[in-house]
Simulated scan of single mutants.
Amino acid sequence: MVNGLAVVVKRMSWLTSLRKDEFHAKMRRFGALNHNNILTPLAYHCRKEEKLIVSEYMPKGSLSYVLLGAKDVVRSNLNWPTRLKIIKGIAQGLSFIHKEFAIYEVPHGNLKSSNVLLSENYDPLLSDYNFQILANPNHVAQALFAYKSPEYIQYQQVPSKSDVFCLGIIILEIMTGKVPSQYLSNNDGGIDIMQWVQTLISEDCALELIDPEIAKDESSIDSMLQVLELGASCVESNPDKRLHLNEVVTRIEEVS
């Protein structure tokens, strides 16, 4: 921009055509959010054929890019303290979203590593939250990651614990450094991170799951295993056995 601010303009073609006043009201609500781990929109453009969201540019890009596609120098900064900081920030941001949008069944709905942006200091900022209220009903299941949860696949339900499932997938992705097949169309590629992690934990081989890049920090292995098992608890197929978000946040905060 002319004032030196760098921004990102994201096209959201799958958003629905709500009444104009409703759409404006919801976008203003997003613009009023204030949390260290939330990417608050700066502006938006709404026409029937075009919907754009304008946000501040985050220099490191997405967590997905930094974790899986960045050059060695950027990725090498993802040591254990940085990864733990990112996990804690994501959990805190999700907790904030759940308080702000508590009236909705699934307050975030699209939490995944490509929707977590990283600041210059590797602080995570959540984006694309609560868009299911704006989404075209015909496209919502394809557009939002919460609809990849086991409860939606089996019962076409997306309760608030679907967000916990999404958080668990991100935690496991950060801890293992692997691409979850759950992110990909028809699970084509990547690794079924739920099955892989749960299998090795049941075989008492959890140490094999940890990304070698951080496993070198032998003094922190116990903390890593603690977070890994917490991530596995978040992706339990049965939502009734899955941890509540408040418990997840509390237990993550206790990790040092």
Rank of each mutant, 00 (worst) to 15 (best):
L68Q: 08
S256I: 08
K20Y: 11
S223V: 08
S114V: 03
N130Q: 15
W80P: 01
G31P: 07
D72E: 15
L63Q: 02
N186S: 09
L18T: 12
C234S: 08
A70T: 09
L84I: 02
M12T: 10
G177I: 07
A102Q: 11
I169D: 04
K10N: 03
Q157I: 09
E208C: 08
C46A: 11
T176V: 05
N34Q: 15
E203T: 06
R242H: 04
N246R: 14
S113R: 03
G4F: 03
N186Y: 14
L94W: 13
N110I: 06
N110D: 15
A43Y: 14
L63S: 02
S113M: 02
E56G: 02
S64R: 02
P159Y: 08
I221C: 07
K148R: 15
V66P: 00
S233W: 06
A141L: 00
V249W: 04
D204L: 15
G89P: 06
D192I: 04
I170M: 14
L78N: 02
K51D: 10
V73T: 10
D192C: 13
H244N: 14
E203D: 12
K48C: 14
L228Y: 01
T16W: 14
R29M: 06
P107W: 06
W80L: 04
L63Y: 09
L134R: 12
E151H: 05
D211V: 07
I171F: 03
P124Q: 04
P137E: 14
P180S: 05
N79K: 14
N36E: 11
M175E: 00
R251W: 01
G4S: 06
S220M: 09
V106A: 15
T16Q: 14
D21A: 10
E236C: 07
N136D: 15
V54D: 00
L68C: 06
S181Y: 03
S13W: 15
D204P: 00
